[in-house]
Design a protein around this nucleic acid. Structure first.
Lengths: 192, 192
DNA sequence: CAAAGCTCGTACATGGAAGTACGAGTTCTT
DNA sequence: AAGAACTCGTACTTCCATGTACGAGCTTTG
């Protein structure tokens, strides 16, 4: 899908710049989805022109940052053991998921403003699939409800995670309580 | 709270213009939170200058539209009978609520971009209180869980409603199924 | 019916962010 | 060490939506 390493290949300093830019973009956009490219360049310790040399448009930059965040999230979540009892696996998955979601909530907003909905969905494929498989497995095991469409269950879990992120940002939920609250909520949601 | 009818009083044609503008703003902003004031004036069948005569800034206009939507929502929801068994009352409340939320989801986004968070919260006070009271009553009756903060329960219900709105917009949930799906989800969420 | 209150077109001012142009200097790569 | 690749400052150019100014002509209201 991506160009794995097409073209003449980049010089080492260029790679470094790009990495710093993407990282800065992730940071800034994660706290303000409207962060200006200008500020991102500054935060990356790089000239504005350098940034434009690598990312022709703001949209490209946002996409790169978003993709990177998803990659990082996937790395975290794919380390979790999801075998055995699906209910317990879900608890383990949620314990890490809420943080991943919370960290990049604003970044997602930025992406939604700039990328077509289909692209966003595409990039989300992995986490969605992970959750879908787990829920399906739970349904097969008879521990999760089957009276609602699986797609809905998957998505509503995501909405609850985003909800928790919002509540934390608004100061109405303590980060320390998040895992427990989210888990209890989701677990009963998955039960009739 | 508002100025009930302060000042010399407006002329009849002004009242009419304002009503048309607010209504157009509600419509446009409910489908595109970034709708331009220009387009709103056009849709209201009113000159741009007339609009600016009544609303000094875009923010004022958005607030007026948002307030009006909340007023309309409140009108709908306050007609619902919430007495008796809290669980059944909740089902009745949700049956109407999901639509109200879905209709103005984009408008809420517009408001969030332009109004301070506190103001939004303030304007939401009524619906929040309605839901809070119902949940508390259910807890007293012993039909709703008490192992999670009531504030969280109230807010997570809102998030689920918004989630349903999103799924509908994305074509992943049929409007006809919404009420059932939302109800089932929320009811089990409110149970241990 | 007259004054006050509204409407609304055209034209302009403002402001913010995106993206471009140019070109001199620096760092890699081979 | 030479050429290619990259950096990056400064100074535009564009674009687009918000908000203003001015003023002629309609409605309401009392």
């Amino acid at each position: 899908m991506e160009e794995p390493s097409a073209r003449p290949r980049r010089r080492a300093d260029a790679e470094r710049s790009i990495a710093r830019i993407v990282s800065a973009a992730r940071t800034l956009l994660s706290s303000d989805p409207n962060a200006r490219t200008d500020d991102i360049a500054k935060a990356a310790g790089v000239g504005r022109m350098t940034l434009y040399g690598h990312f022709g448009t703001r949209a490209e930059l946002v996409e790169a940052a978003f993709t990177d965040a998803l990659r990082a999230g996937d790395e975290t979540l794919s380390a979790i053991d999801l075998t055995g009892n699906a209910r317990e696996a879900m608890t383990r998955l949620l314990a890490s998921s809420w943080q991943v979601v919370a960290e990049s909530a604003a970044l997602l907003t930025a992406a939604e403003e700039v990328l077509p909905a289909g692209r966003i969905r595409e990039l989300h494929a992995k986490p969605v699939q992970r959750m879908t498989e787990l829920i399906r497995r739970g349904q097969d095991q008879g521990v999760f409800r089957t009276d609602l469409p699986t797609v809905w269950l998957v998505n509503v879990v995501h909405h609850v995670l985003h909800g928790a992120a919002t509540e934390i940002r608004a100061g109405r939920l303590e980060p320390d309580d998040a895992a427990e609250v989210v888990t209890k909520t989701v677990q009963s949601m998955l039960t009739v």
